[in-house]
Write a protein that binds this DNA or RNA. Structure first.
Length: 440
RNA sequence: GUGGUCGUAGCUCAGCUGGUAGAGCGUCUGGUUGUGGUCCAGAAGGUCGCGGGUUCAAGCCCCGUCGAUCACCCCA
């Protein structure tokens, strides 16, 4: 069999890289739980009409087909989910009677999109999603809380600093309304291209597509240019001289988010009035997050507030959430070697074997260490000690234990230091017990 | 999904106007008779991504395909 090639857009990690991913996921999980989020796992598939509702046109959904299905039989119409928000909305409706509201949950699962892969964009990727959903009304303070939870979760990971750009759709759309623009959705979509195609091209699009005048287009651009790390953007917007009730609402909501974030996580959040978000189910605050030095990757953590994503006709369940693109964040850093683990196996101690006749004794020694939570494996062969040390070195295992008539000796193979130890009390330094993530 | 660039040993790469494949690093063995990393000597390792075509002859030219990457689209 020829060596199989990777499948485009379906990245697989080596053990050392997977250790990093696993530890990041563990870290996120711990952080989310510290904030009281319960875990939920939803199925991989959703009915197509769920996935395609809300006019999400070209989501490149992977459709599920049974090979043996009769061509004539009714199609189940299932597709793999492309994010975790849509399945969660469905889950909330399905279980509304059994859930307590406001309901806060986190969900860490793969998602699938049939798009052409690029660095940081894959066809199968891991997403870590938190949402808070309430019944009827969702208090605005959750729009402040959610980014702070994310900030907390990302803190402590050896990643480049992140900056969250926040806007409020009411603000932008109210502003456009105040200018007399009807299709505010389309205006947002065009403004969203500002970074890519530049001010002139955006102005042209606004005039050509929406028929707005040059002064209106100019006003839209002036709004989009506004950015601030505190609430000072409010005055800047007001100076543009547009009045609209929706705009006022958006201004005060965004100011609340930015001020609270500045107080609790200085430097994390910046108001950026050009952020729009493509997904049209967002109705208030929207978030995009960039890795400093890796802005080209795009947003590594996005979300926002949605008022009507889940509705059964009688009740609506407004929510606010953010998704960390774990794969987008990690895979490029792992593949370029900027992020790695201190070793490629969990093993902390390799127990040397003097001769095959001593293997069961070595097994017993290993078991004593494991009983105290120290990941331990026994040397695969009774080769020369130099080879056994090499075996550990290759894998990054920090300690090798030798046993003989005169007791046990623990060798730190990084320093070469070797000391007699008592098996039942020896502890590795805390940082050596498990592999750690290291940057650069 | 549309278009561009790229694909040679495990890794990084060389390979002339087409003439049957090279280096460094790594790996293995020995020097080193039970304590690695240095040094020295030697060895293994390639259907040149894959398939087809042109040619006396293809790593090199042409077509297709797969993969990587970039732009568009969209977005985690």
């Amino acid at each position: 069999m020829p060596r199989p090639q990777p499948l485009s857009g379906f990245p697989e990690l080596l053990p050392r890289q997977r250790i990093v991913e696993q530890q990041v996921v563990d870290h996120l999980r711990r952080a989310f739980e510290l904030h009281g989020f319960a875990n939920v796992r939803t199925r991989a598939v959703e009915p197509m009409d769920q996935l395609l509702r809300k006019g999400e046109t070209s989501k490149e959904v992977y459709v599920l087909r049974r090979l043996q299905a009769d061509s004539g039989s009714g199609d189940a119409g299932l597709g793999l989910h492309f994010d975790l928000t849509v399945p969660f909305a469905r889950y909330v409706l399905e279980n509304a009677g059994k859930l307590q509201f406001p309901f806060r949950r986190y969900q860490i699962q793969p998602c699938w999109r049939g798009e052409r892969p690029q660095e940081g964009r894959y066809r199968e990727f891991l997403q870590a999603d938190i949402d808070i959903v309430d019944q009827g009304e969702l208090p605005a303070h959750y729009e402040v809380e959610i980014p702070l939870v994310i900030a907390d979760a990302l803190r402590g990971l050896p990643l480049p600093p992140v900056r969250m750009h926040v806007n409020n759709r009411k603000l932008s759309q109210g502003f456009y309304q105040g200018l007399g623009i009807d299709d505010t959705e389309e205006a947002l979509r065009i403004i969203d291209k500002l970074d890519k195609i530049g001010a002139e091209a955006v102005a042209k699009l606004l005039m050509d597509e929406l028929g707005v005048g040059p002064e209106q287009a100019e006003a839209c651009l002036r709004l989009a240019e506004i950015t601030s790390a505190d609430a000072s953007f409010v005055d800047e917007v007001k100076a543009l001289g547009v009045a609209n009730p929706l705009l006022e609402e958006g201004l005060s909501e965004l100011a609340a988010v930015v001020e609270a974030a500045a107080a609790e996580a200085p430097g994390l959040v910046v108001a950026d009035l050009k952020i729009a978000r493509g997904l049209d189910y967002y109705t208030g605050t929207v978030y995009e997050t960039f890795l400093e030095g890796h802005e080209g990757l795009g947003s590594v953590c996005s979300g926002g507030r949605y008022d009507t994503l889940a509705s059964d006709g009688k009740h609506t369940y407004p929510g606010v959430g953010l998704s960390i693109g774990v794969s987008r964040l990690l895979v490029p850093l792992l593949q370029s070697g900027r992020l790695t683990a201190t070793r490629e196996v969990p093993t902390c101690v390799l127990v040397a074997v003097a001769g095959e006749e001593d293997r069961s004794a070595s097994n017993a020694i290993a078991q004593r260490l494991r009983a105290r939570g120290i990941p331990t494996q026994v040397s695969p062969s009774a080769a020369k000690y130099g080879k056994q040390i090499k075996f550990a070195d290759r894998r990054g295992i920090p300690f090798v234990l030798f046993s003989g008539e005169d007791g046990h000796q623990m060798r730190d193979i990084r320093s070469g230091e070797q000391v007699p130890v008592d098996l039942d009390s020896w502890e590795p330094p805390a940082e050596d017990l498990h592999p750690r993530i290291v940057a650069e």
